[in-house]
Design a protein around this nucleic acid. Structure first.
Length: 165
DNA sequence: ATAAAGGCCACCC
DNA sequence: GGGTGGCCTTTAT
Protein backbone atom coordinates (compact mmCIF):
# COMPACT_ATOMS: atom_id res chain seq x y z
CA UNK A 1 0.00 0.00 0.00
CA UNK A 2 1.14 3.49 -0.65
CA UNK A 3 2.07 5.81 2.10
CA UNK A 4 4.51 8.28 0.68
CA UNK A 5 4.33 11.20 3.04
CA UNK A 6 5.06 9.86 6.51
CA UNK A 7 2.38 10.59 9.05
CA UNK A 8 3.26 13.42 11.37
CA UNK A 9 2.63 12.85 15.06
CA UNK A 10 0.92 9.50 14.61
CA UNK A 11 -1.22 8.42 17.53
CA UNK A 12 -3.79 5.76 18.29
CA UNK A 13 -6.01 4.63 21.10
CA UNK A 14 -9.17 2.88 22.17
CA UNK A 15 -12.60 4.02 23.28
CA UNK A 16 -16.07 2.61 23.63
CA UNK A 17 -18.65 3.41 21.03
CA UNK A 18 -22.27 2.50 20.43
CA UNK A 19 -20.93 -0.48 18.49
CA UNK A 20 -18.41 -1.88 20.92
CA UNK A 21 -14.87 -0.80 21.55
CA UNK A 22 -13.22 0.99 18.67
CA UNK A 23 -9.64 1.79 17.78
CA UNK A 24 -8.81 5.11 16.17
CA UNK A 25 -5.49 6.07 14.63
CA UNK A 26 -4.76 9.61 13.55
CA UNK A 27 -2.04 12.11 12.81
CA UNK A 28 -1.84 15.81 12.01
CA UNK A 29 -3.23 14.90 8.62
CA UNK A 30 -6.43 13.45 10.02
CA UNK A 31 -7.85 10.08 10.92
CA UNK A 32 -6.20 7.22 9.08
CA UNK A 33 -7.95 4.27 10.74
CA UNK A 34 -11.14 3.51 12.64
CA UNK A 35 -11.77 -0.14 13.44
CA UNK A 36 -13.98 -2.30 15.64
CA UNK A 37 -11.62 -5.15 16.45
CA UNK A 38 -12.29 -8.29 18.46
CA UNK A 39 -9.23 -7.65 20.60
CA UNK A 40 -6.79 -4.83 21.15
CA UNK A 41 -3.98 -7.04 19.96
CA UNK A 42 -5.63 -7.57 16.60
CA UNK A 43 -6.18 -3.83 16.24
CA UNK A 44 -2.53 -3.13 16.85
CA UNK A 45 -1.49 -5.90 14.54
CA UNK A 46 -3.65 -4.28 11.87
CA UNK A 47 -1.98 -0.93 12.34
CA UNK A 48 1.45 -2.48 12.29
CA UNK A 49 0.51 -4.18 9.08
CA UNK A 50 -0.97 -1.16 7.33
CA UNK A 51 1.64 1.29 8.52
CA UNK A 52 4.97 -0.44 8.88
CA UNK A 53 7.67 2.08 9.78
CA UNK A 54 5.12 4.18 11.61
CA UNK A 55 5.41 4.46 15.35
CA UNK A 56 2.03 5.31 16.84
CA UNK A 57 1.94 6.77 20.31
CA UNK A 58 -0.96 5.63 22.43
CA UNK A 59 -3.32 8.38 23.50
CA UNK A 60 -6.60 6.98 24.75
CA UNK A 61 -7.69 10.30 26.19
CA UNK A 62 -7.65 12.01 22.83
CA UNK A 63 -9.34 9.03 21.21
CA UNK A 64 -12.13 9.09 23.75
CA UNK A 65 -12.63 12.75 22.99
CA UNK A 66 -12.68 11.98 19.29
CA UNK A 67 -15.16 9.16 19.79
CA UNK A 68 -17.53 11.47 21.65
CA UNK A 69 -17.35 13.98 18.83
CA UNK A 70 -18.03 11.32 16.26
CA UNK A 71 -20.69 9.19 17.91
CA UNK A 72 -22.42 11.69 20.19
CA UNK A 73 -22.11 15.04 18.48
CA UNK A 74 -22.07 13.64 14.96
CA UNK A 75 -18.97 15.58 13.96
CA UNK A 76 -17.01 14.68 10.86
CA UNK A 77 -13.32 15.00 11.58
CA UNK A 78 -10.79 15.30 8.79
CA UNK A 79 -10.04 11.93 7.19
CA UNK A 80 -6.82 10.66 5.73
CA UNK A 81 -7.56 7.28 4.18
CA UNK A 82 -4.64 5.75 2.37
CA UNK A 83 -5.21 3.60 -0.71
CA UNK A 84 -4.98 3.25 -4.47
CA UNK A 85 -6.82 5.58 -6.82
CA UNK A 86 -9.46 2.96 -7.43
CA UNK A 87 -10.04 2.54 -3.71
CA UNK A 88 -10.08 6.29 -3.11
CA UNK A 89 -12.76 6.83 -5.72
CA UNK A 90 -14.90 4.19 -4.09
CA UNK A 91 -14.37 5.52 -0.59
CA UNK A 92 -15.36 8.96 -1.84
CA UNK A 93 -18.52 7.51 -3.35
CA UNK A 94 -19.38 5.87 -0.05
CA UNK A 95 -19.31 9.24 1.67
CA UNK A 96 -22.08 10.45 -0.62
CA UNK A 97 -24.57 7.90 0.73
CA UNK A 98 -26.85 9.74 3.14
CA UNK A 99 -27.20 8.36 6.65
CA UNK A 100 -30.23 6.15 7.04
CA UNK A 101 -30.05 5.05 3.40
CA UNK A 102 -28.47 2.06 1.78
CA UNK A 103 -27.15 1.34 -1.67
CA UNK A 104 -25.70 -1.71 -3.40
CA UNK A 105 -22.25 -2.77 -4.52
CA UNK A 106 -23.49 -2.61 -8.11
CA UNK A 107 -24.73 0.95 -7.70
CA UNK A 108 -21.38 2.05 -6.33
CA UNK A 109 -19.68 0.45 -9.32
CA UNK A 110 -22.07 2.41 -11.51
CA UNK A 111 -21.44 5.61 -9.60
CA UNK A 112 -17.70 5.54 -10.18
CA UNK A 113 -18.18 4.76 -13.85
CA UNK A 114 -16.99 1.15 -13.67
CA UNK A 115 -20.23 -0.81 -13.91
CA UNK A 116 -18.43 -4.08 -14.60
CA UNK A 117 -16.06 -3.86 -11.67
CA UNK A 118 -18.59 -4.93 -9.07
CA UNK A 119 -16.45 -7.69 -7.69
CA UNK A 120 -13.48 -5.38 -7.28
CA UNK A 121 -15.75 -2.78 -5.70
CA UNK A 122 -16.67 -5.31 -3.04
CA UNK A 123 -13.03 -5.96 -2.25
CA UNK A 124 -12.21 -2.26 -2.16
CA UNK A 125 -15.10 -1.59 0.19
CA UNK A 126 -13.80 -4.39 2.36
CA UNK A 127 -10.50 -2.56 2.51
CA UNK A 128 -12.08 0.61 3.88
CA UNK A 129 -9.69 1.76 6.60
CA UNK A 130 -12.09 4.13 8.36
CA UNK A 131 -15.23 2.26 9.33
CA UNK A 132 -18.39 4.21 10.13
CA UNK A 133 -17.05 7.59 8.99
CA UNK A 134 -16.59 6.13 5.54
CA UNK A 135 -19.93 4.38 5.68
CA UNK A 136 -19.24 1.06 4.04
CA UNK A 137 -21.97 -0.40 6.25
CA UNK A 138 -24.56 1.29 4.04
CA UNK A 139 -23.75 -0.98 1.13
CA UNK A 140 -25.74 -4.18 0.74
CA UNK A 141 -26.23 -6.77 -1.98
CA UNK A 142 -28.44 -6.35 -5.00
CA UNK A 143 -30.50 -9.34 -3.95
CA UNK A 144 -31.31 -7.68 -0.65
CA UNK A 145 -28.76 -9.66 1.37
CA UNK A 146 -26.66 -7.83 3.91
CA UNK A 147 -23.38 -8.59 2.19
CA UNK A 148 -20.25 -8.73 4.28
CA UNK A 149 -18.60 -6.60 6.91
CA UNK A 150 -15.03 -6.70 8.04
CA UNK A 151 -15.95 -6.19 11.69
CA UNK A 152 -18.81 -8.67 11.78
CA UNK A 153 -22.31 -8.62 10.38
CA UNK A 154 -23.79 -7.92 13.83
CA UNK A 155 -21.87 -4.68 13.86
CA UNK A 156 -23.11 -3.76 10.40
CA UNK A 157 -26.70 -4.45 11.45
CA UNK A 158 -26.32 -2.32 14.56
CA UNK A 159 -25.01 0.61 12.58
CA UNK A 160 -27.88 0.45 10.13
CA UNK A 161 -30.42 0.21 12.96
CA UNK A 162 -28.78 3.06 14.79
CA UNK A 163 -28.96 5.31 11.73
CA UNK A 164 -32.54 4.47 11.00
CA UNK A 165 -33.62 7.14 13.44
C1' DA B 1 4.81 -12.11 -14.39
C1' DT B 2 1.48 -14.76 -12.75
C1' DA B 3 -1.72 -16.81 -9.65
C1' DA B 4 -5.18 -16.69 -6.16
C1' DA B 5 -8.37 -14.57 -3.54
C1' DG B 6 -12.07 -11.67 -2.65
C1' DG B 7 -17.87 -7.85 1.70
C1' DC B 8 -20.52 -9.33 -6.12
C1' DC B 9 -24.04 -10.31 -9.77
C1' DA B 10 -26.95 -12.52 -13.25
C1' DC B 11 -28.46 -16.65 -14.50
C1' DC B 12 -29.49 -21.29 -14.13
C1' DC B 13 -31.59 -25.38 -11.64
C1' DG C 1 -32.55 -22.43 -1.64
C1' DG C 2 -27.84 -23.63 -3.96
C1' DG C 3 -24.15 -23.76 -7.74
C1' DT C 4 -21.47 -21.63 -11.98
C1' DG C 5 -19.08 -18.47 -14.78
C1' DG C 6 -17.71 -13.87 -15.60
C1' DC C 7 -15.81 -9.67 -14.00
C1' DC C 8 -11.92 -6.60 -11.98
C1' DT C 9 -8.37 -5.12 -8.48
C1' DT C 10 -4.86 -6.30 -5.06
C1' DT C 11 -1.53 -9.01 -2.86
C1' DA C 12 1.50 -12.61 -2.46
C1' DT C 13 4.34 -15.67 -4.77
Amino acid sequence: MRQLPPLSEPSFGFSNSPFGECCIAFSNDGICALTFPETRESAMYDLENRFPETNFRQNDEKVERLARQIFEKGDRPVLNPIGTDFQQSIWRALQRIPAGKTTTYAQIAEAIGRPKAVRAVGTAIGANPIAFLIPCHRVIRSDGGLGGFRWGLECKKKMLEWEKK
